[in-house]
Design a protein around this nucleic acid. Structure first.
Length: 187
DNA sequence: CTACAGATCTAT
DNA sequence: TAGATCTGTAGC
């Protein structure tokens, strides 16, 4: 079943590990693409120096200040997209970056999904989906619970990737991934 | 208006 | 370890 809005309107660090083992799904006229989420990173609150929202509310970050269950998608380094699901209640900026999925169906065998830029390529994600809802019948990209149970000892925590500039926040263990999963972006 | 850094990835 | 490539944001 598709995750609904109440799932996303909750504390981000509690929600993040619960995304592991859930399924990212997109549907176009041609096909449905499915991948199991195996790695995420949390970007939490107005003081997190690694988060775009720490520079305040701008046109770009406005969606992070809104209610959970919307997509935040941006172009990075001129070439790659990053896919985030917004979390928490309105007024508190937070989102979870989906860093890697395990291919399940509809993804060409040569398409890698072990990294935020690569999984967006594999799912055809770009900024046309930015600020669109991840819930409801109109969603073109959403997350499903398919009954996979992840135990606490299968989940590993580590500092986030590529946020060396974030001062005290660079070492926060806000990256969550499945232990020993070969599709995690870095081990 | 201009400058520049960046939640990446690939090849060297 | 550097280069590709472009947009949001800040600074003047």
């Amino acid at each position: 079943m598709r995750l609904t809005r109440p799932f996303y309107v909750r504390p981000t660090l509690k929600l993040s590990p619960q995304l592991l083992g859930k399924f990212l799904v997109t549907e176009t006229a041609h096909r449905q693409r499915v991948g199991m989420i195996v790695e995420v990173e949390a970007y939490v609150g107005p003081h997190d120096l690694a988060s775009h929202a720490s520079r305040g509310r701008t046109k770009r970050t406005a969606v992070m200040f809104g209610p959970g269950s919307y997509w935040y998608i941006y172009l990075i380094y001129g070439m790659y997209y990053c896919l985030n699901i917004v979390t928490e209640a309105p007024g508190y900026p937070a989102a979870i970056l989906i860093r890697a999925v395990e291919p399940i169906s509809g993804i060409p065998p040569n398409q890698k999904t072990n990294g935020p830029g690569k999984l967006c390529q594999a799912f055809g994600v770009d900024t046309t989906l930015n600020e669109t809802p991840a819930t409801g019948p109109r969603a073109r990209l959403w997350i499903e619970d398919r009954g996979v149970v992840i135990s606490a000892r299968q989940i590993k925590r580590a500092p986030r990737i590529g946020v060396e500039y974030a001062g005290a926040y660079k070492t926060k263990p806000w990256r969550f991934y499945l232990k020993d999963n070969q599709f995690v972006s870095k081990l």
